[in-house]
Nucleic acid binder design. Structure first.
Lengths: 220, 220
DNA sequence: TGATAATTTGACCGGTTGGTAAACATTACA
DNA sequence: TGTAATGTTTACCAACCGGTCAAATTATCA
């Protein structure tokens, strides 16, 4: 008899790799649009192009599928923050962090919505991830920002709320895309809004931190 | 035989007022946590403290309930933006707008999450509201902001993205509350984070718009 | 008070849900 | 090539879903 994924100890076959990939791709599509409870296994199976029992051969439950998806995506989702470099130039670091987050909102909106859905619904499955790895990473980067402020390289500010602000403003363009497009109207049908947003957010954050475009001394 | 809400032409009875209120309160609780598809009528009925058929006597379908809830909440949700006054002092206006939005995130997080869920899932039921009334209101206020910039009262910036930024940063404290609390740790158990956020966001936006704390001329 | 309208309930319905059992098909590999 | 492990499908299940119905209960007011 066959053993589904969770019970296997041997290395994965080619078919397993392919099918699990297909499934997670389809799961991302459906979960990101409807949340965990609103998504149905039938729908995911249909998007993945396979029968429901076949899908359940690879992931025994809907929850297992969701868990696998979240863990995989969370890791890459935090990459931009990890690249935040203490040794770098504050202005360049903050600017490129905003740019990268905005690029991710543009290129991977489903991943953003998956998290938004999860957090919005109380994060029942990833609370530990938030309080553990995520908090540690943010604590580390907050210390960097605080050091920059103490050295007078940027204005003094609460580093946690600075990070929250960058998260929220950039992810807004993925999570609230429908609203953004409705308000801007269809004349901005292309990706132009992302460039406009990048320009505005740089102005906002660099101005708000008292650093001009060319890294200069803080104002008196 | 009795006529449910939608078909009634007479004035509403006391019981109708009370029960519809109970139901919408319960619906807000459940919809804001699970989204439309993830919410169940049974669950709403249980929270409302009545039987499912009784609930369906007042709102004939789940969708009717959701529609009634959205329309009611959307109106009050936009109040802070409506109060944005062209004649006022730009610094005071922007500052008080941020404060009011943040207060709403603190005092009415469920309402914020209700919208977030709706937008996140493609806004199937309120797209018209977004493209109509909402867009008109934002267009109007964007013109005000642009005029302020033209008059040199604030820095030149894209007014739409400014509004998006205020929305996203403030609503973040309602929609992503679980994440915010996880990152800040339980030492900030009270509402202190809202005061910290208010301070930071004022610094960010007023600085980003080149206006100091005491309304002054723009820097050279 | 009594009759009429408004409200509430338990039983129920067809369709969908997440998930299973077992027969069948395909692949990997000795 | 044979065969054992892996992969796929059809048929199915019990629980749950949104919603209906008719009977029972309660409020209203002449």
């Amino acid at each position: 008899m066959a053993l589904p994924r969770a019970a296997r100890t041997q290395r994965r076959t080619r078919i397993q790799e392919e099918k699990e990939e297909q499934i997670l791709e389809a799961a991302l599509e459906v979960f990101s649009l409807h949340g965990f409870r609103g998504a149905t296994v039938d729908q995911i199976a249909e998007v993945a192009g396979m029968s429901k029992p076949n899908l359940l051969y690879y992931f025994r439950t809907k929850e297992a599928m969701h868990r696998a998806l979240i863990t995989r995506v969370l890791d890459t989702w935090l990459d931009p923050l990890r690249e935040f470099d203490a040794e770098g130039n504050p202005v360049a670091e903050i600017r490129s962090y905003i740019r990268r987050k905005l690029e991710m909102a543009r290129d991977f909106p489903r991943e953003s919505r998956l998290f938004a859905n999860e957090i919005l619904q109380g994060a029942p499955n990833i609370e530990d991830e938030l309080k553990g790895p995520l908090k540690e990473l943010v604590d580390e980067k907050a210390a960097v920002i605080r050091a920059w402020a103490k050295a007078g390289k940027i204005a003094k500010c609460d580093p946690y709320h600075l990070i929250f602000s960058i998260w929220s403003t950039t992810q807004h363009y993925a999570d609230f895309d429908v609203q953004v497009r409705a308000v801007l109207g269809q004349e901005n049908a292309g990706d132009g809004r992302f460039e406009d947003a990048a320009r505005f957010l740089e102005q906002l954050f660099l101005g708000g931190l008292n650093v001009s475009e060319q890294p200069a001394s803080t104002s008196p």
